[in-house]
Amino acid sequence: MRQEWESQIAEMRKGSVRGLARLITRVENRDTGWLDAMQIIYPMTGKACVIGITGSPGAGKSTLTDRLTRELSDQGFKIGIIAVDPSSPFSGGALLGDRLRMKEVSTIDDVFIRSMATRGALGGLNLAARDVVKIMDAFGKDIILIETVGVGQDEVEVVKAADMVLVVCVPGMGDGIQAIKAGIMEVADIFVVNKADKDGADQAVADIHAMLDLSADEASVKIPVVKTIASTGEGVTDLVRMMLQNFEAGRIRTSWQKERIKEEILSLLEKEVARHLRNRWDQNGNLDQAIKQVTARKQDPYSVVQEMISLMHLQ
């Protein structure tokens, strides 16, 4: 098992795009041994810059990602893209359409795009997104862009995966401002007012500045607000310059590092424990049994859980 993973990782490290793609699939699927695989990969990581791109649905995140990639790729950076779209809660399937807006960069040699479905995860990312970032890093990508689901609020998961977060807003209808209010303020390292070809772009910029001034204290760094027209590329050069400046100035989320690591360990643990339990229940039929009991009102869900926990010797 471990050998199989090792040879796959070696193939990826040699630069095989197919190898990279397949490794991502297996880790995303939590194939047996995936934790061992990530242990091998982890020491190969730590070089790439990770940029999160979030914002309301249809704000232009994919179009902007395409433009940023062109610009950064022209400057010689190797780019990896993770584009997340929601899974259907009913069928478990997904329509992954971000790539539709990334046609032009999809065949550039040093660009690798991977679409991912949320597969039930909340917060705008896929559970394996952080692992996929590491795999792309180990492959040799310099910059990894993560486009989150367009949620509009609460999609702060990306902060835990990224060194820098762009929040994309659009002018008009109070939309941009609404999105910011919902707690997204704190996650932005750069605000982008996209669709600046539309009425109200300057107003949106002014509104965002006003909000930022309200919450800023003396010590905090000034958060830039940039106007772009992703569909034509206007403003993107400025945005890229600002992003690279941020990196050079070390204005990245290093202060979050401890929090991030703690959170990563806890969430991995939580998911792995739950997964193991579910797998075991699926096999031994205990879950079906419990469902039957509760349906017949012979037992309640609370005592089911308590029993399961005591079986784990956690109490």
Partner: peptide, 20 residues
């Protein structure tokens, strides 16, 4: 339709070259 049957579908839109 395939999404509703539980598949993960990547849709890349019109006018794709074989390379793409």
């Amino acid at each position: 339709g395939l999404r509703d049957l539980g598949f993960e579908v990547i849709y890349t839109g019109l006018r794709q070259t074989p390379e793409e």
